[in-house]
């Protein structure tokens, strides 16, 4: 539960910072070039995933495809969705959501794979 107390502190600070209305924004402005680079990376990864799918890797095909998709998602989330600049509380939220989702998979497969 250490994560929780951390959250507690952080948001307590936030409340204090919430003075003078949060017209936040404006703190970060990313150069157009960075976005283009990210986009190029995404396109490159897409071509990799299409190419790899053509090669017969057996059971590795699925894992590679998912790994590439995960990397692409991280790129979109971190740069395009500005998680890079976001308050830590939002990062924790994302982790909690993904953690719960992962639990659902593990427990469902605890059933399926032992049937």
């Amino acid at each position: 539960m250490s994560e929780q107390s951390q959250t507690a502190e952080l948001t307590a600070n936030q409340t204090y910072n919430a003075e003078h209305t949060n017209t936040n924004n404006g703190e970060h402005s990313v150069s157009y070039g960075t976005y283009f680079m990210v986009w190029l990376g995404l396109v490159a990864l897409t071509s990799v995933t299409v190419t790899v799918a053509g090669i017969h890797l057996g059971s590795l095909t699925l894992i590679t495809a998912l790994l590439i998709a995960a990397v692409k998602t991280t790129l979109v989330g971190y740069h395009f969705m500005h998680l890079k600049f976001d308050n830590i509380i939002i990062k924790i939220f994302v982790m909690v959501c993904l953690g719960i989702f992962l639990c659902l998979w593990i427990l469902t497969f605890a059933d399926l794979s032992f049937r």
Binding site: C103, L104, L107, A110, D111, F114, R115
Partner: peptide, 18 residues
């Protein structure tokens, strides 16, 4: 509470391990 839903399904035919 998220991790216990299977106890509604003990006789449904799911695996013994789960």
């Amino acid at each position: 509470g998220y991790l216990v839903w299977g106890h509604h399904m003990f006789v449904s035919g799911m695996s013994d391990a789960s």
